[in-house]
Structure formats: C-alpha cells, structure tokens
Amino acid sequence: MTRFILSRIAFGVLVLFLLSVFVFMLFYVSPSDPARIIAGDKATEELMAQIRANLGLDRPITEQYVTFIGNLLQGDLGYSYRSSMPVSELVVSRIPVTMSLVFGGMVFWLAIGIPIGIVSAKHPGSVRDRLGQGFAIVGISFPTFVLGMLALYLLYFVPTKLGFMLFPPSGYVPFEQSPLQWAWHLLLPWLTLALVVAAVYARLTRGQMLEVLGQDYIRTARAKGVDERRVTYVHAFRSAMPPLVTQLGIDIGLMLGGVIVIEQVFGLLGVGSLAVTSVAMQDRPVVIAIVLLGGVFVVVSNLVVDTTYALLDSRVRTATR
C-alpha cells in the first residue's frame, strides 16, 4: 500500500513539473509583451526595457524557467503585474471562497443526486424513475448561468420586490467571521452548483445500481433473508460506490481550480473569478499560479481517489497487503 501511494506521489510530481514547463512555454510564445501591460500604452521604450530587465525577461528562457522554479520551491510566485501584490497572497486569499463553494455544493449534490439515482434504479420505469430521469436531463442540458440567473430571479429578485430578502444576491462572508452568514450567502450558489452536478450523479448512481442489483450476490442476499433496505444500501450501494468516488475526485479536483461561471454569477471572489480577470489582463504570474494550483488539486484528488478506491476494493486491498 505504501509503495503504491509513493509511486502515485512521484507520478503526480512529474505531472506537475510537465505542467509548469507547458504553461511557461505557452506564455513565452504568446505575442503580448508584459512590459507593455505593466507600464501602460504611453510608456517609453526605455522604461519598458528597464521593466523587462527587472523582471528578468531579457534572459534566455531556460534561465527564466530555472529562476521561476527556484522561487516557486521557496513559495515565491512573483508579483502580479496588475496589482503588484505577491501572487501567492493573491491566490491563497481566493482559495477559501472556492473551497467553501465546492465542498458545500458537494454535500448538496450528493444529497440530491445519489438518492434520486437509487430510487430510480430500485423502481426502473416507474413514475419516480421518470421524474428522476427528467430532472437529470434538465440539470445536464441547462447552461449553468441560466440556472444561476433563474435562482437569483426567483429567490432574490422576486422576494425583494415583494419586500423581503430571502437570500443575499452576492458576496462572501468568511466562515470564521460568522458561520451562519457564511452559509446564508453561499446557499444560492450551492444549490445552483448542486442542481447542475447532481444530475450527473443521479445518472451515474442509477446506472451503477441497476447493474449491481442484477448481480447474483444481490439475489443471494435476498435469499438469505436480508431486508430490502440492507440489500440496497449495504450490499448494492457498497458495490456501486467506487465509480462514484472516482467521479467525485475528478469533479472536486477540477472545481477547486475555479468554478468560473457560478463565481461570476454570484459575485464570489474565488479562484475562478481571479482566473477570468487575470487572463483578460494578461497577468502572467497569476495565471501561471492558478494553472499550477489547479494541477495540484487534480493530482491530489486523484491520489485520494486511487487510495480510496484501493481501500474500497477487497481484491486490490488484499493483493497489496
């Protein structure tokens, strides 16, 4: 098991290294000039040369890269071209917002998606199944921003017009400051995110459960006199779980790198909205940092998934013991 985890970590590090080379190269070949961005349109050629020298942009790319990695390993990601703030500070300040959004949303999408999937699979073809399927289709086919706007309209705009405020339209209150306010502000984004993602989980759960419920060992469990609830949850859902864990790991890893649309719609200053502004403004160090951060999240969540997967499967677990 330890060997397995160590090899996965080594692999992850390799992936991150390749990713860093890749983004670095991408910016090197891009036509825009950072000096121009920093100094503005009216800057003199002299000033721009000065800036380039300061940033080390006049040196060969390999040297630039080595300096970059050296600094990175010391936790120094450079300064934002726009705000002149340290990039690490800028990015780190955005992480709690995105994490709150993603993990809170996860609780909701699992709580909505999995039960729908299970009920559908238990009664395939029934009215409940068709309702669940319909829900999944709506969730999958509606663009996220439409759902977000709809939620805002129904739960913020309409109540406000009627004279009371059900939910705040936007903003973020740190958890440490007031857990209640934190949740209240995030509820609409959570629900919107959950509606979009739950559909995927409902479908996945339904498909997995249908397959597992047809297995011989489920029949054995019933023949043993195990009650139906236990058959569903202890026997069937247990076997349906691994693919769900995989999907969850992938989703979480990707979303922690920024939930762009929802952050934009609800005015949450998370990693996603930072990414949008930084790309628009050619803020190279920030974009590189966000890409690498996203990479780290994906690698870490994959590691967690693989480990959980191994722990969930008796065959893998006993083979590596």
Partner: peptide, 22 residues
C-alpha cells in the same frame, strides 16, 4: 423474508458471483 434463509436456504450455481466480492 423471515422464511428465506431461516427455514429455506438456497445455494446457487456459481459460487463466485453468488458471494459478495467486497
């Protein structure tokens, strides 16, 4: 349910797929 497994037991054909793998 209370008859199944207590008063009448079943043994199935394929002992690998009939036991829960996990």
């Amino acid at each position: 349910r209370s008859v199944r497994g207590r008063e009448i037991s079943m043994i199935f054909q394929d002992p690998l797929s009939s036991l829960h793998p996990q």
